[in-house]
Computed example of a mutant assay.
Amino acid sequence: MTPLTVTPGTGPGGTPLLIATGEIDLANVQVLARALEALADTAGTVVLDLTAVEYLDSAGLSVLFRHAERLEIVAPPLLEPVLTYSGLADLAVVRAP
Rank of each mutant, 00 (worst) to 15 (best):
A35C: 07
L50C: 09
L79G: 05
Q30S: 15
S58M: 06
V6W: 01
T51C: 09
E37T: 13
L50H: 02
A59P: 08
A52C: 05
L39H: 12
T45P: 10
V94W: 06
E54H: 15
M1Q: 11
G13H: 10
L61T: 03
R95V: 10
D57L: 10
T5H: 12
T2H: 12
V46I: 14
G60T: 05
V63A: 08
A35K: 01
V29M: 02
D57H: 09
L36V: 07
L88V: 00
L56D: 08
L48D: 01
L79F: 03
E37H: 14
L50N: 05
M1G: 14
A68R: 14
A43W: 02
A68W: 06
A92G: 08
I24Q: 07
S58T: 15
L78F: 12
L4N: 01
L79W: 04
V46C: 06
A33F: 01
G22M: 08
G9M: 06
A52I: 00
R66A: 15
P76L: 03
V82W: 01
A96N: 11
T2I: 02
E72Q: 13
V94D: 03
E23V: 09
L26Q: 11
G60H: 04
T5S: 15
A89V: 01
L36M: 05
P77M: 06
E80A: 15
Q30Y: 11
F65C: 04
D90Y: 09
D90C: 09
L78A: 14
R95P: 08
V46L: 08
L36S: 04
R66K: 15
A75C: 06
E37P: 01
P81A: 08
P3W: 11
F65I: 09
L18S: 07
P77S: 10
A68S: 14
A35Y: 02
L56Y: 08
R66Y: 03
G87S: 05
D25G: 12
L78G: 06
A96M: 10
E69H: 14
P12I: 10
V94M: 07
V63N: 04
L50A: 03
T84C: 04
E54A: 15
Y55C: 00
A75T: 08
L36A: 04
T51W: 05
T42R: 15
G44P: 07
V74F: 06
P77H: 03
L83W: 01
P76I: 02
A92R: 06
G87F: 05
A68H: 11
L56M: 11
V47I: 15
E72A: 12
L26T: 12
P3M: 11
T10S: 12
P97R: 14
V82K: 02
T2L: 11
V74I: 12
N28S: 08
S58A: 15
L71T: 04
Q30E: 15
L61G: 00
L83G: 00
E69C: 00
Y85G: 00
G9S: 04
T21A: 14
I24H: 05
H67Q: 12
L18G: 07
A52Y: 05
E23I: 02
L18Q: 07
E80N: 09
T42H: 13
G9P: 02
A96Q: 13
A35F: 03
A52Q: 13
Y85H: 11
D57W: 10
G44E: 10
Q30I: 12
V82D: 02
I19M: 13
Q30N: 14
L64C: 10
A92N: 04
L71Q: 02
